[in-house]
Design a protein around this nucleic acid. Structure first.
Lengths: 253, 253
DNA sequence: GTCTATACCACGATAGAC
DNA sequence: GTCTATCGTGGTATAGAC
């Protein structure tokens, strides 16, 4: 159905991998995992269909490595910044905003660096986290679980009033709002329609998103998420039934 | 209204549509739009491959009608409940919690009604809103835009301090957290691991979710969302002269 | 070691027989 | 209404060229 236009490039040897990565990334942004065919990718990269199988072992391997290329540096930078802030705090535990900043700032930095992320970096991140394909879901949760765990600890220290289970849920809600917003095929339209940038000098090409937009977007998102994390605890109905033994610990896990 | 025989020989016409609907719904929950093949659907429904094309005009039509079967009653009930509460308020404008309740309560009611929704109703809703397929995205945004607009008005009246653009964004964040959480293939695991129901009498079949779980989930989500909607306004950098060389302030740190 | 050509089976869609 | 046959395209696997 959809044929990607072949790009007549110099197809000299060893950077075939990189060309395939770039093609896969661009197509994944537009069509998702299932919607992106190997034939589209290889045509756009100017490579042979079988090259993907040779270099990455198949479609699954290609997309896993494609994501790791972008997300490994992100999670590394996040952990580094969190550790740095912790050391700078000298015993005092970090505030909720500081922990969230340790998540956001490296992401914005990579979005400004064309070599390690680029303009569409945050959209890629969001698309990856909302994609329904089991391949991507398993890869992401397995590979980046340690980072999430570390940040969960940091948020727990910053929000001593929130029980552990409740905090786990709230981080899940947070991730949902974040991923869904960044992924937005429509968030892009929303930005244009609702939130014109201060300098509308040149209308950007369709589909491209400025890091300026991303910055404003995360600036809007941050207060929303922080207020949600600090929200009053929910009133879950009392168990009331026969096995009424375990409810005492719910307050301060 | 007897479903009568699920036996292959009594496959006379009329309820073929229903069997296909049910099969498509179950498969969509597990594999999403792109991941569900017509061959899977028709095999499970005991129908011929071409039957889908005959009854629904193709895969797109099948999934559109499948979603409308569940979501039309939901949006109808939401609008009805919102109108009812407004009339009951006699001029006083509704509170934020009341508007949110007009979204949540009909959804939970349908999840309790096997005829119009059923156990997996909320998961279906979430999956539909998270699915990246353009077919579903366009259908959902086109068909249910009026409801969203009405609720946006109601939230705007309940939150007079929030500018219109900011409110639009916050509803977008809200929808993200909601859809992502309800869709969760993993949210189901989270429920089991973190939030055991008070009466773990019979372990439910894998993949099935109890309406009890859904109720607790939305009870946790509501305070998070309401606090986010009421959050202090973000500090978007002033449209200063210099072109986008600002240092990060996105974390509000 | 890198890449190409090609064959294989499953997918969605459709035409036409029953 | 239902079915079979068929077409173009999807991911994958392999044999062999450079």
């Amino acid at each position: 159905m959809l044929k990607a236009t072949p790009v007549p490039e110099a197809r000299n040897g060893a950077d075939t991998r990189e060309r395939i990565f770039d093609a896969a990334e661009a197509l994944f942004l537009e069509h998702g995992f299932d919607g992106t065919s190997m034939r589209m990718v290889t045509a756009r990269a100017g490579a042979n269909l079988a090259a993907v199988n040779y270099h990455f072992g198949g479609k699954d391997g290609l997309f896993r490595e494609m994501l790791a290329r972008r997300l490994d540096p992100l999670h590394e930078a996040r952990l580094a910044l969190l550790g740095e802030r912790r050391r700078g705090a000298r015993g005092r535990s970090l505030g909720c905003e500081e922990v969230l900043a340790a998540m956001f700032i490296p992401a914005l930095a990579l979005a400004r660096d064309p070599a390690r992320g680029g303009r569409d970096f945050l959209r890629l991140l969001g698309r990856a986290y909302v994609d329904p394909s089991p391949v991507l879901r398993e890869f992401l949760s397995a590979r980046y679980a340690p980072t999430i765990e570390t940040f969960k600890e940091a948020f727990a220290a910053a929000l001593p009033g929130i029980p552990r289970r409740e905090l786990a849920w709230r981080l899940h809600f947070m991730l949902g709002a974040l991923a869904y917003t960044l992924a937005g095929a429509d968030a892009w339209r929303l930005i244009a329609a609702l939130d014109p940038p201060p300098c509308p000098s040149a209308p950007p090409a369709a589909g491209a998103r400025d890091t300026e937009d991303d910055e404003r977007l995360l600036a809007r998102l941050a207060p929303f998420l922080i207020a949600g994390l600090r929200a009053p605890l929910p009133d879950l109905g009392a168990p009331a039934a026969a096995p009424a033994a375990q409810r005492t610990r719910a307050g301060t896990a």
